[in-house]
Design a protein around this nucleic acid. Structure first.
Length: 573
DNA sequence: GCCGTTTTCGGCCCGACTGTTTTCAGTCG
């Protein structure tokens, strides 16, 4: 898609101009355009054809001309010119921690370093530390930065990072003098993967807490340790490192610091620009009118003072949230009444029907659905028709014998390569809940994957589509789906689309959640649990739904049992 | 390069930490 190619081209221009020593403001313009294009849902070629380019935020005449140039010729003159002048691999060095554009420009100009490999050699031969303004420590720090880059292996999934953050937050909360600890950053915003962990604590003695934080047993490497801020890494599996930042603030600044350290960076820049327009100044200590603090103890006080409703952290991405007239009522974990997709020992789960039901009851749920795999999923010990019939009887028996929770019988039925389902209609009709999912042949393409799934959407026995795109975060790409078309089909067939809450999936992802809501489709947040403990992954599905702007009314399993029954009957018609 | 509830020119987000300096530039978040 041209949007993504253009975004990459502008990002590249910004990188090269940075090393070239161009104006920071010009560079920012290109970065902003790149970010905007990357997240633009509409095809930029259509926008260009309709002469609306300069109506887009952050895109003026100069950028619009370059967009047109790219559409017409497939290239941008400015980019070609920069690439001709600077080595191709030089911008890779911008990824190294502690090494920025100015220093890169110098090691290129004075040492002829053109790549990561060149740089390693230059450090090993002592040429970097010999440069004026660079010293031994700089050289070691760059070497460590390169090692970190090679080991960090990309971003960490939300489900791996959050438990680590919670454990560290508990440790810090128990340090003497600490009043309050909170998780900030992309983790708080519920990003599906995160680059580092940001923690915040309220305490009067910053130096002591930072000292304690950077000398914890699990610390692998200390990056910084001052009186208000500490930064260190811990070691994950396979030698990978994860950076943890801690910021210490006083009570009156806690809200300002939460706001500041929750980001996103783009959201914060916009917010501070807004403050400047009001003749105010916003930093991590508060909102100031001259020397007077006018807000800061709570996040809400800051947004209110800037004429905005409190914006939920999950929506702080500079993607339209500044237009809100009131705080959107997003779905919360307390709205969830049940979980409609889980497995038992009948197929590839680890627990019994009763164990799953009891665990769900403990979590306060009104209902669950037992949805084991269908016959084609042999690798997951999928159920033959005969086994399914027996399993349905077992679920009904458990339901009859269990008070306080409704246990629906169901199936997670494969959508086969030709779009047909793995059980005939009369068998599906025996199930209360049918989750239809693609598990095999995601790339084989007998028919277009969107059409394949729409076949299942239009089957009246299908309650919902499980993990619609089939992606596994950092492991397997999504199927090439036309999500708007899928969402329209789901809306008109009264078939729900799942937000699979497993942190390895988060599927639908938040951008697609937004598209589904706009199309009027019903969503459902399920854990796809294969063990009772995995029922707790519901929270990852919740943040994903919130990032997509979902309210409780958009989510099927926020309905009480009675309303759900009526919806199930209606959706089968 | 973008943009306007002071502006079509002259601004553009803000502070902490580090290293290599001897007052600050570079980098980061």
């Amino acid at each position: 898609m041209v949007n993504k190619q253009l975004a990459a081209a502008f990002a590249r221009i910004a990188d090269l101009m940075e090393i070239d020593g161009d104006s920071g403001f010009r560079i920012n313009s290109y970065r902003r355009a790149a970010r905007f294009l990357k997240s633009l849902d509409e095809n930029i070629e259509v926008v260009a054809r309709e002469n609306r380019l300069t109506k887009l935020p952050g895109i003026g005449k100069g950028t619009a001309d370059k967009i047109t140039e790219f559409i017409d010729t497939g290239t941008i003159g400015l980019l070609d010119e920069l690439q001709e002048r600077l080595p191709e691999k030089l911008p890779d060095l911008l990824d190294i921690q502690g090494l920025g554009p100015k220093k890169i420009a110098r090691i290129y100009a004075e040492l002829g370093v053109e790549s990561m490999d060149d740089l390693k050699v230059a450090i090993d031969t002592g040429r970097v530390q010999a440069l004026s303004g660079f010293g031994q420590k700089s050289a070691s720090s760059i070497a460590e930065g390169i090692a970190f880059l090679e080991k960090s292996g990309g971003r960490i999934p939300l489900g791996v990072a959050l438990p680590i953050a919670e454990r560290l937050a508990t440790i810090i909360a128990n340090m003497p003098g600490v009043e309050k600890v909170a998780i900030a950053g992309s983790l708080r915003r519920g990003s599906e993967t995160i680059g580092d962990i940001d923690l915040l604590c309220q305490c009067d003695d910053g130096s002591r807490i930072v000292e304690a934080f950077t000398t914890l047993d699990e610390v692998h490497r200390v990056l910084a340790a001052g009186s208000t801020r500490g930064s260190m890494t811990i070691e994950l599996d396979r030698g990978r490192e994860l950076q943890i930042d801690l910021r210490v603030v006083a009570e009156e600044s806690f809200g300002a610091a939460m706001q500041y350290f929750s980001g996103s960076k783009e959201h914060n820049v916009r917010l501070r620009e807004r403050a400047v327009r009001k003749k105010l100044r916003l930093n991590e200590y508060g909102l100031y009118d001259g020397e007077t603090r006018v807000a800061g103890a709570s996040e809400e006080s800051i947004y209110t003072a800037l004429g905005l409703p409190l914006i939920p952290a999950e929506l702080r991405e500079d993607r339209g949230e500044f237009d809100f007239s009131e705080t959107p009522k997003l779905v919360t974990i307390d709205d969830i009444r049940g979980d409609l997709h889980m497995h038992t020992i009948a197929s590839d789960g680890r627990c019994t029907i009763q164990e799953m039901a009891d665990a769900a009851k403990q979590r306060g749920y009104e209902y669950i659905a037992i949805t084991d795999h269908s016959q084609s999923s042999t690798i997951a010990n999928g159920l033959s028709i005969a086994r399914l019939e027996a399993h349905i009887q077992a679920v009904r028996l458990a339901d009859a014998q269990t008070d306080g929770i409704k246990i629906y019988s169901g199936t997670e039925c494969d959508i086969l390569a030709d779009g047909s389902l793995d059980y005939p209609d009369d068998v599906l009709a025996m199930c209360d809940i049918v989750v239809a999912s693609v598990h095999a042949g995601m790339r084989s393409g007998k028919i277009d994957p969107t059409t394949r799934i729409i076949c299942a959407i239009e089957n009246p026995h299908v309650t919902m589509i499980g993990h619609p795109s089939g992606r596994l975060i950092n492991r397997r790409p999504a199927m090439d789906l036309d999500i708007p078309r899928l969402a329209r089909a789901a809306a008109s067939a009264n078939t729900a689309l799942e937000i699979n809450a497993s942190w390895q999936r988060l599927d639908l992802k938040s951008d697609h959640v937004r598209i589904a809501i706009d199309a009027g489709a019903m969503l459902v947040i399920d854990t796809d649990a294969h063990h009772t403990e995995q029922l707790d992954q519901m929270r990852f599905g919740i943040v994903t739904a919130r990032r997509g702007g979902a309210s409780a009314a958009n989510i099927l399993n926020t309905m009480d049992h009675k309303s759900l029954q009526s919806w199930l009957i209606r959706s089968c018609q």
